[in-house]
Nucleic acid binder design. Structure first.
Lengths: 134, 134
DNA sequence: AGGTTATTTAACCGATGAGCTAAGTACATG
DNA sequence: CATGTACTTAGCTCATCGGTTAAATAACCT
């Protein structure tokens, strides 16, 4: 019954309250009370949101006396970015320019391109990341 | 009642079936039948998933005779990537290195840093994108 | 017109999700 | 120890979601 990690991360991000909480946390670690302030919502509701975010790996929580300070956790963000990388060529112009360059460099394949799909495609899964600002 | 665009996009991405459909579409435009094949699921279910993806702006659909070919639509992907950019500094090392460089260049602020938050932070909203592979 | 293929709509069901209030836990301090 | 502060858990409601089957629509092909 538990969703795969990427699904729970996306699900966690699919709520404006939770995204606002993350935006606040991007400014620095803070308490639940502090996080709750901007919202016209009960504290338990915020508590639940935080649990969802934590479960999704988007935040982590510490303990300091009666406070449970929250902070951004990088890993899930990274995973989302990685997944998104598989589609980057669809909108990122500079990405495409670079891809085109790499394309030209291995012309040996160009002659036997299969006519199956519309565009020429190399899926190259995760490999996409890491080429951007190395 | 309708969610904001970013929320519906994230919600659409929070399902493994839909992500698999997108992965298939990354290989090129194709029909509903073709998209349905890999899944042990009724056709109406797939049809619903496609409607969700379309509504989220992640795909667009054409008409060719009795087929409704689907293809990736870039805009929502781009928006997600843009939003994610606000958090890139939390995981992308090279991003941080570049940020540190920019930091050093404007040292005039370094002396009067406020002790309010843990890290030194400039929010710089969307501006983050576009510096990667210019 | 009548049939086949491709896809959507309608109507339903069980599970999950976001919100609430009320009560419980954990720590700090008078 | 009693009270206050900072949360979390429990239990409820209502809406939405992912799936189903059955029927409808749409376009092609005799």
């Amino acid at each position: 019954m538990p969703l795969d990690p990427l699904s729970s991360t996306f699900a966690a991000l699919a709520d404006p309250t939770r995204r606002a909480i993350l935006a606040r946390l991007a400014l620095g670690e803070t308490s639940v009370m502090e996080l709750a302030k901007p919202f016209d919502m009960s504290l338990p509701a915020i508590s639940k949101h935080l649990k969802v975010l934590e479960h999704a790996g988007l935040i982590s929580r510490g303990r300091e006396a009666q406070w449970r300070p929250c902070r951004i956790a990088p890993s899930s963000f990274k995973q989302v970015d990685g997944w998104l990388g598989n589609f980057r060529r669809f909108w990122d112009e500079s990405f495409n320019r670079l891809d085109g360059l790499l394309e030209e460099m291995k012309v040996e394949e160009a002659t036997k391109a299969p006519p199956h799909t519309t565009r020429k495609v190399r899926v190259t899964k995760e490999k996409q990341r890491g080429r951007t600002r190395g």
